[in-house]
């Protein structure tokens, strides 16, 4: 564990709390892509199957359980509790274009032909693109509530912090995970446009609005 990974994980936790807070206080999941949230459940469940057979640390265990539970809770909020505020008609990204290629990539690039290893790879690839339905929705509507942009910024910060974590681990432990690094770089790249608007507008006190 190093500070980059630690604060990355904390940032990831924060993003989830921000999202849940947004839904509760506004009593609405407007502006949130249900598809992205479903993909995150798929990511966490397929990646954390090792909860059943391997022990890393208490920290690792608690975080994994939290990510699975909180992502399922968000689906419940969106589909049951605040269902009327969820508008599927603007959440139109075709998820099969993400899941299919990720499954193929996982079969080609993995660390061993075991079901759990292939699912692990799949989850890494899927996480890297899971935010796309959300960003697509943002693009379509052209604007976002400020709190939603804080959610995305915290998620983006989590991904960004994993990069110095890998650099640190390479030099301190000689540890490199090529699959995680490659997918992680792609994932972080997806946030660049968003970050630009976030830093130049939202953090200057303006509303998140994309140019028409």
């Amino acid at each position: 564990m190093n500070i980059f990974r630690f604060f990355g994980d904390i940032s990831h936790l924060a993003s989830i709390f921000i999202l849940i807070h947004k839904i509760h206080t506004s009593r609405s999941c407007r502006g949130i892509s249900f598809k992205t949230q479903v993909l995150y459940v798929a990511v966490f469940v397929t990646r954390y199957l090792d909860l059943l057979y391997s022990w890393v640390s208490l920290y690792n265990f608690v975080m994994k359980v939290f990510f699975i539970a909180s992502s399922c809770y968000i689906l419940y909020l969106m589909k049951v509790r605040f269902r009327p505020t969820n508008d599927p008609s603007i959440d139109t990204f075709r998820v099969e274009y993400l899941v299919g290629p990720c499954a193929v990539l996982a079969l080609i690039f993995n660390y061993g032909y075991a079901v759990t290893e292939v699912l692990w790879s799949f989850s890494i690839f899927l996480e890297s693109v899971a935010i796309l339905p959300q960003l697509f929705m943002l693009q379509r509507t052209g604007e976002a509530e400020t709190i939603t942009t804080h959610y995305l910024a915290a998620l983006g910060a989590y991904r960004t912090l994993y990069i110095p974590n890998w650099i640190y681990r390479y030099f301190s432990e000689g540890y490199v995970d090529p699959i995680a690094v490659t997918a992680g770089l792609v994932q972080t790249g997806l946030y660049l446009d968003f970050f630009y608007v976030y830093f130049t507008k939202v953090l200057q006190g303006q509303k998140f609005e994309l140019p028409a």
Binding site: D9, N60, K64, F67, D177
Partner: peptide, 10 residues
């Protein structure tokens, strides 16, 4: 192998 790719990251 297990050592290097133990998947200790979240």
């Amino acid at each position: 192998h297990e050592e290097v790719h133990g998947h200790d990251e979240l």
